[in-house]
């Protein structure tokens, strides 16, 4: 695993290997959405080459979910948990 630190609001800066990756931020389920839209939400991914808003789970720590912005080209985190997301495109 590449090495970067995620600043957990409960535990402070921790190695990313303590966290499990929960994928890019996706829209929440919309009960009024069409079936086609729901299928897209479930399966399709942006798979960004650049800034990505994503979720991590502190599996080997306090077991809290956090949301960060990471540059997938460099693995540098540009927005730690709680920081403003910045100008990131998401489908959410």
């Amino acid at each position: 695993m590449s090495h970067f630190y995620i600043r957990c609001p409960n535990c402070g800066p921790r190695a990313c290997s303590e966290f499990s990756y929960n994928g890019e931020v996706r829209p929440l389920a919309d009960p009024a959405a069409s079936e086609a839209a729901e299928i897209d939400r479930l399966w399709l991914r942006r798979n960004a080459n650049g800034l990505q808003r994503e979720r991590w789970f502190h599996a080997a720590g306090c077991r809290r979910f956090v949301t960060i912005t990471r540059d997938t080209r460099t693995n540098i985190i540009v927005a730690q948990p709680g920081e403003p997301a910045g100008d990131v495109a998401t489908h959410a």
Binding site: M1, S2, H3, C16, S17, S20, Y21, G23, E24, N47, N49, Q52, E54, T72, R73, T74, N75
Partner: peptide, 15 residues
């Protein structure tokens, strides 16, 4: 494979 997505090809020691 490593669990997170990336376009970075740097090899790592932990691997």
């Amino acid at each position: 494979i490593e669990p997170y997505t990336t376009y970075n090809l740097r090899s790592t020691f932990s691997f």
